[in-house]
Design a protein around this nucleic acid. Structure first.
Lengths: 352, 352
DNA sequence: TCGCCCGCGGGGAGCGCTCTCTCCTGTGCG
DNA sequence: CGCACAGGAGAGAGCGCTCCCCGCGGGCGA
């Protein structure tokens, strides 16, 4: 590892020699052959094939200043990458999109100030063409650090400062709209005492979902809102507190599926039937969770992998928009960096 | 993105000029200052600081043929990266270790033959110093492809062909030993009809755990073994089948926590008490699962993050071994590439 | 005192590629 | 039939860095 790989890899020169042309011609053929006679191009291609030539990315980067690589920066991975499949799915979407553009994915996981400095240095070092950044918490320094490097960046999830600075390209699902749909569904079911188990309110997704709830249920009893943390254990606790406080509640909108699952357990434990006595709606349509709760969870689906793809696309294409039809709800009109908010869909199962 | 980043980054030359020395001297200072007078080195360091100089990795790689980057190749991510935190934790360990060595992590997710070819090309292109490969299934072509590129590689989990070819560096936990411990624990509890819910038997981890079970319970009733798939839904199904077949069973060793959780649900559903009527042991000590089942799951813990670190370390250090004391159970004696098998520990909770 | 050796610092080549500039060839038109 | 022009191919200059090799100077032994 410390010593260089023994490296008899053929160079452009070698290919050129074999094809009987100049380096320049080979180069032209290798990167999109414009203005090279067909016969020659073919000969070059054959030489490339025979020699198993692969361009040296380092040499290429040196002159082009492009790297065909983007960084994915994740703040505090313990929070999300491990607890739920959310980040993995997003990563998958990103990976697919990058692969389609022959770009590499450099993963930078951070878990503290030291790491932040390291990431800042790396990004500032100009080793990548852009960055996709994930940060969940309001007070997280990472977004600022990433922005400070000047590297083109797209954020995953609405950053909390997107309110004050509008020049922030991000991709997020329509948390607020999804929450509205969820609550409206409960209302349509005739529920009148609808509680909300929130997510951690230092995350915009949780805040936006709460806003959506409030929007539909303006003037709702504040005791029906219980702050929670997106975990199933938290959901259990929250549900208990809510039931103790408001035994008459007949609907619950949980800010994510995990806390909904916790809530369901407590409801059953208390002998309440779902959905007859209490209807429950979650959020995320999380893999391996929403379908397997008892009863299966009605929830708000977001296309997580699609959001990942979108982030990558936004970063790679910069200006030219190529979102899959139907997913885009809103775009900042004309503004340079365009936040993209993707639609959610209510998935009806048995719990509401 | 398509156009190069505007790049007024200072070069070695600039630093040299500012410090009043030659490029070579600056280079020496930048990469571990050997043989440079202290005063000069200090002056250089100041110049670096003032100019905010960051070495151009591309230029450096071009001449050194090192990249300070390793690839993490994951076959069929849908299988694992999303369903459970296993891979995320391992990634975290890898990331930490790489960060400590100033190496970058290039993530290559694959999900089909096209991707395999792409990955093969990338690795063969010599863009990274080494690779860490994860592949689960017996018939997966990825390991072969990775090996064929000649890039130094460490595998995550014992590859199935490690039996026939011993020159395979991999890191895995002691699946067999852990399984033995689990089953012996059940035996020590006085259980005599101990069932086993296996994992998918095209994965070595599942096979090894089954072997461990068999090793302790030689000649066990084969009807006590039910093949399953590492999912909780599968665990439910398996448990039902087992109970239908052998209503007198009094112990269950599930090949992972997820299937154990499913089994627990079915046991409760059937009115069987855990651990009084049936004692249950899982495997993995999976985050957010083992502690939250009802009752909390006795299980076999593996240090997943540690295994990630170990993989990275093995790859980076090559020959010089620096494992944390205590974790290493076995190493191929003297052989070049050393498989590392990490110890597991039985975590006793309420289920057995 | 002189010479030699050693240690520090500098000069310069060149890693493999792209890209501009120039040259050459072939074609079409006057 | 000659000339101009266009388009295709080659030569060459670096991109920023490392590292080899050499030169210079100081210290020490003869």
């Amino acid at each position: 590892m410390s010593q260089p790989t023994t490296d008899p890899r053929p160079t452009l020169e070698a290919v050129a020699a074999r094809a009987g042309v100049s380096r320049a011609t080979v180069s032209r053929v290798v990167n999109g052959s414009t203005g090279v006679r067909k016969s020659l191009a073919e000969r070059v291609r054959r030489a490339v094939e025979e020699l198993g030539y692969v361009p040296n990315q380092a040499a290429r980067s040196l002159v082009t200043r492009r790297h065909d690589a983007i960084a994915v920066v994740v703040a505090e991975p313990e929070t999300r990458i491990f607890a739920d499949p959310f980040f993995g799915l997003q990563l998958r979407g990103i990976s697919k999109e990058l692969a389609a553009h022959d770009s590499q994915l450099v993963l930078l996981l951070t878990e503290g100030p030291d790491d932040y400095a390291r990431v800042g240095r790396y990004l500032a070092g100009g080793h990548v063409d852009g960055a996709l950044a994930f940060s969940l918490h309001l007070d997280d320094a990472l977004p600022g650090i990433v922005r400070a490097t000047g590297v083109p960046t797209v954020f995953g999830g609405r950053p909390y400062w997107s309110d004050t600075r509008r020049d922030v390209p991000y991709v997020d699902c329509d948390n607020r709209g999804g929450a509205r749909d969820a609550v409206r569904h409960l209302v349509a079911l005739g529920r009148t005492r609808i509680a909300h188990i929130t997510g951690p309110l230092d995350q915009t997704s949780a805040v936006d979902r709460l806003d959506g709830y409030r929007e539909v249920l303006a003037g709702a009893d504040p005791r029906l809102i219980e702050e929670c943390d997106f975990t199933s254990a938290g959901g259990e606790r929250a549900m208990r507190d809510l039931l103790d406080r408001c035994p008459d509640l007949d609907g619950v909108f949980a800010a994510n599926d995990l806390s909904a699952a916790g809530a369901l357990r407590v409801l059953r434990e208390r002998g309440l039937r779902v959905p007859e006595d209490v209807a429950v709606v979650g959020f995320d349509d999380m893999l391996h969770v929403a379908e397997q709760t008892d009863p299966p969870l009605t929830t708000v689906r977001q296309d997580i992998e699609g959001m990942g793809r979108l982030m990558a696309r936004l970063l790679l294409h910069g200006r030219d928009r190529g979102q899959p039809p139907g997913t885009v709800v809103r775009e900042a009109p004309g503004a340079e960096p365009a936040p993209v908010v993707t639609q959610t869909t209510l998935v009806r199962r048995a719990s509401a």
